[in-house]
Design a protein around this nucleic acid. Sequence first.
DNA 1: ACCTGAACACCGTTCAAGT
DNA 2: ACCTGAACACCGTTCAAGT
Lengths: 203, 203
Amino acid sequence: MQTRPRRYHHGDLRAALLTRAEQTLREKGPAALSLRELARDIGVSHAAPSRHFKDKQALLDALALNGFERLGELMTECQARVGESFAERLDAMARAYVGFATANAALLDLMYSVKHNPEASQELRSAAQRWSEQIVQLIGEGQRRGEVRQGPVERVGLPVFTTLHGYASLAASGMLPPEATEHGLDDVIASILRGCAPEPASS
Amino acid sequence: MQTRPRRYHHGDLRAALLTRAEQTLREKGPAALSLRELARDIGVSHAAPSRHFKDKQALLDALALNGFERLGELMTECQARVGESFAERLDAMARAYVGFATANAALLDLMYSVKHNPEASQELRSAAQRWSEQIVQLIGEGQRRGEVRQGPVERVGLPVFTTLHGYASLAASGMLPPEATEHGLDDVIASILRGCAPEPASS
DNA sequence: ACCTGAACACCGTTCAAGT
DNA sequence: ACCTGAACACCGTTCAAGT
């Protein structure tokens, strides 16, 4: 029943809020996320968060942005640990993305959520774009290796990105058809490869 | 300042709530959706909605379910108004889906949202699946016409579905890279077709 | 600069009571 | 069966005041 004693100076309240927010997002879902409860859990007054996030949406925006950053890091890491062939790199990237999506379903939902502050959504859009450009870059390498068909790299890359994103977001929201759990991702990757392969002879 | 007079019997409160809810969802976003405000707008007491939806999430679930039903109808309609070739039918379906997604961005977000009542999410999952099966069916027709490569229809169809869904949901959330507005969807459709085309000679 | 405490206007949910 | 009105425990946000 006793509320925890309050230290006047919290080390890094902003970081503490984000960490705790992501934890409850993961454990109890986005509906259960309240600034007041966050403040209580951390041990500051309910008005303290407003010093660091001008409103609740600003905290959600920061959470989403942080998600994109971690996703980007995850991708560069996973690409460093894998061979050079396009098929291998695509496979690794696809599995890493889907892994992130299912391990952070609520966060992914938030990252691509339609409700963001107009100012923050600008920042988020460019974060999303930086991420999609990692796939585009992969396509570029594939083209240089002759393992991906020629053409403007953004135009060849976008369908790859939307395909992976579609699978990842369906997996995260639990809306994948039940048959998919078996070879779903394999089939998706195979289908991307078929669509990416250089044309046999023509032109 | 005056609150509207309250008719004791509302014609169909459930339907009125859903209609109004979708309107404010579209106009002011999901965060602005409150049961109390809905009740005020319609002219019933704030406790009246609970007769029709056991809680707020139940209303959101109903909204999402309704979205899937309309999406399904939209698809059967659009398929009725179009030629028989697979390419033509896929194109029509893709444009209709993306059209629905951008015209009902907040609703699409809700339809594939990760936070749903466990009981309702069952129902939603099967609604999502019925919808994805419309694409699978399209693939089946394409196979019979020899315009889509052979193989288990669900396994050939899933990548098509995830690709379309990925594009639609990115378009809805405004996260498509800016280059995409030009030929984004064309490229995606083309990439699906390339991946769906029957193999040239082998096997 | 950073935080508190009180205050304000809202919520969702429940429940006895009314018709 | 369907709705009301009051009550409860919560919200997010703001703002003077404290250190």
